[in-house]
């Protein structure tokens, strides 16, 4: 990959600066479990959380991505570089999701009771 590490650092800096603004007031930016979107993949691909947890998805790529639940139960706006999206998983179960722009990108939130 020829993307420079400088652009990667810059993208991360933008995430750090912008995320708190986009989080709901009840969220705790620093504590919230995160799914990072990098190199067209969700990291971690499976994230396990307890019911009631707010998960933050953050886009660290130079291209927008869009988080959509397979069952359509949640859907972000297009996330540009550095943008975040927060969703609270109130019910237990496995929630598979994908990127609405690049549907080969897939991930899962496993919500325990």
């Amino acid at each position: 990959m020829t993307r420079t590490s400088i652009s990667r650092l810059l993208a991360c800096a933008l995430v750090a600066g912008g995320s708190t603004l986009l989080l709901p007031e009840t969220g705790h930016a620093a504590d919230a479990p995160r799914v990072r979107i990098e190199n067209f993949s969700f990291e971690p691909q499976t994230l396990t959380v307890k019911a009631g947890t707010t998960v933050v998805f953050e886009n660290d790529d130079d291209i927008p991505h869009l988080v959509v639940a397979d069952d359509k139960s949640f859907r972000s706006k297009a996330l540009d570089t550095g943008d975040t999206y927060a969703f609270t998983f109130s019910k237990p179960g496995d929630f598979a999701y994908f990127c609405g722009l690049h549907p080969h990108m897939r991930g899962k939130i496993a919500v325990s009771p």
Partner: peptide
């Protein structure tokens, strides 16, 4: 963008 399979992912390629 990179040629297929020549990078970890597609996306803007800085040259």
């Amino acid at each position: 963008q990179p040629a297929p399979g020549t990078a970890p992912a597609p996306g803007p390629m800085t040259v």
